[in-house]
Nucleic acid binder design. Structure first.
Length: 354
DNA sequence: CAGACGTGGTA
DNA sequence: TTACCAAGTCT
């Protein structure tokens, strides 16, 4: 199976930016960006990142806001903060050299068992196993595994397969070959078994169970929240209007990113009451709510929101950050500098069009 | 160990 | 529109 798979890879390998000029640093950055993220999405981010942060030292010397701005839109922002933090650690305690031992890698934030195995095998040529979503799917099919995915029992079997089937001579190519095969041939829906190089080794193909492998576990429905946000505007003499931004806490959703203040509408309150309450709680002031400023729908991983924005004027005391780490007054043409999540970026774009 | 953690694409 | 996915990790 290893030979047939590697022969297929030699013919069908995708040309990707991180596959030219292989270095541990480039491999590391690409693997982190690719976590839960499509190749096509990652490519432009990877190219921009390498322009801005060509090596570990450049990343370590930059500030986190610059890093987050470069990451904006990719999601799972703890990945960017971990990259930055790790670059500083490597510079300060590891002589600026990325470790080659997967056990050492796994101690670094953002690098788990999969990523350590991927960087070790792909970046260093070390025979380390890697098990990602693609490889889970392929081994669930070749082994015709009837255990539900993501249970500890199933994980143990799949990791054992990854260890035992790994090609010791070309571990990196082998792991990448499985991921390319999973992307192009052994796909989640409508797999192309007719063009698969390893059907003769595939038990699910023989048993006609490809369509029901891997066995998916039931997903629960996600909640939908109604949310309000305030676009607080400040007019100044002979100057462009400024808008209030708040920096979110470091931990949790969209950590350290900037937003227009607001929050969840409780069951017993109106949008306006919600805004006044949130402004009081977050900024310790009150506002006059003016006209609606758009309705925005967005789906996060584990919940969905419909957000109603309103233009507001401060009518209380000077706002101060209570829940937020900091606040800033930005002119329309300054909004792009602040790293934000998707919804707040959409609101920013609308402000720029006023 | 279940749930948190983003976003854009596709069926 | 909803559901689910896509090179996972952390708590």
């Amino acid at each position: 199976m290893q030979k047939d798979l590697l022969d297929w890879f030699d013919q069908n390998k995708r040309l990707l930016p991180w596959r030219v000029e292989r270095t541990p640093y480039r491999t590391w950055i690409s693997e982190i960006m690719l976590q839960q993220t499509r190749v096509e999405t990652v490519i432009p981010y990877f190219l921009r990142w390498m322009e801005k942060f060509p090596d570990i030292a450049a990343l370590a010397e930059s500030d986190e806001q610059t890093v987050l701005k470069c990451w904006e839109g990719l999601g799972y922002y703890h990945r960017a903060r971990s990259l930055h933090h790790t670059a500083i650690t490597i510079n300060q305690t590891m002589d600026g050299i990325f470790p080659s031992d997967p056990k050492v890698m796994q101690k670094l934030p953002g690098i788990g068992r999969y990523t350590a195995g991927a960087i070790a095998s792909i970046g260093f040529g070390i025979p380390a196993a890697a098990l990602d979503g693609n490889i889970r799917r392929i081994y669930s099919r070749t082994g015709d595994i009837s255990l539900p995915q993501r249970t500890s029992e199933c994980e143990k079997i799949l990791w054992n397969m990854a260890e035992e089937l790994l090609d010791p001579d070309r571990p990196g190519d082998y792991n990448e070959a499985l991921m390319d095969l999973g992307n192009a041939v052994c796909t989640s829906t409508n797999p192309h078994c007719e063009s698969c190089p390893i059907t003769s080794f595939c038990l699910a193909y023989r048993n006609h169970t490809v369509a029901i492998r891997p066995v998916q576990t039931a997903v629960k429905s996600i909640p939908h929240y109604q949310v309000a946000a305030a676009v607080i505007r400040k007019a100044e003499d002979n100057q462009p209007d400024r808008y209030l931004l708040a920096q979110r806490p470091a931990k949790g959703l969209l950590g350290n990113l900037w937003e227009f203040p607001g929050g969840k509408i409780e069951a017993d309150e109106t949008v306006q009451e919600c805004l006044q309450r949130e402004i009081r709680e977050e900024l310790d002031t009150t506002v006059t709510i003016r006209e609606p400023f758009g309705t925005y729908r967005h789906a996060y991983t584990h919940f969905r929101v419909t957000l109603q924005a309103f233009l507001c004027d401060i009518n209380g005391q000077i706002p101060r950050p209570v829940e937020a780490q900091a606040i800033a007054w930005a002119a329309a043409d300054e909004l792009d500098r602040f790293p934000m999540g998707k919804i707040d970026r959409l609101i920013s774009e609308r402000i720029k069009n006023i």
